[in-house]
């Protein structure tokens, strides 16, 4: 489930509020808040749509996790999904590397 909106990186653009398919976030006067965490379906799409890599979705779908944001930011996990699918400027060549056609029919 969604666990982190990093206050340092977030620019209050509110794209996550719009893009989340299950309406988990609420706008505020400042940065958005995770208002309905239990509605999160752990689809990771908010991470893809966040232009600042400010969001972290924990892979645990049913249980909230305690996340140490300082430790998290020492790794390269923030934005890792966006880079993997080629949705950042320097990874755009990854958009066309789907090799599923070699895996079908197994």
């Amino acid at each position: 489930m969604i666990e982190v909106i990093d206050a340092e990186r977030c620019t209050s653009c509110d794209i996550c509020v719009t893009a989340c398919p299950t309406n988990v976030f609420d706008k505020t006067d400042g940065i958005p808040v995770i208002a309905r965490q239990s509605d999160c379906q752990t689809c990771f799409l908010c991470e893809l749509y966040c232009p600042e890599d400010a969001l972290y979705v924990s892979p645990f779908a049913d249980e909230a996790q305690l996340i140490d944001v300082v430790m998290l930011k020492r790794t390269d996990v923030l934005g890792s999904y966006r880079r993997a699918v080629g949705w950042t400027d320097d990874t755009r060549d990854r958009r066309g590397v789907d090799r599923s056609y070699l895996l079908f029919g197994h």
Binding site: F44, P59, V77, Y81, A84, V85, D98, R99, L103
Partner: peptide, 20 residues
């Protein structure tokens, strides 16, 4: 080879593993 194809074809499959 299959592992490499899986990684590039379906990055989200690996999120639960890489993050744990």
């Amino acid at each position: 080879g299959v592992q490499r194809h899986m990684r590039v074809s379906q990055p989200n499959f690996f999120l639960p593993f890489d993050r744990t």
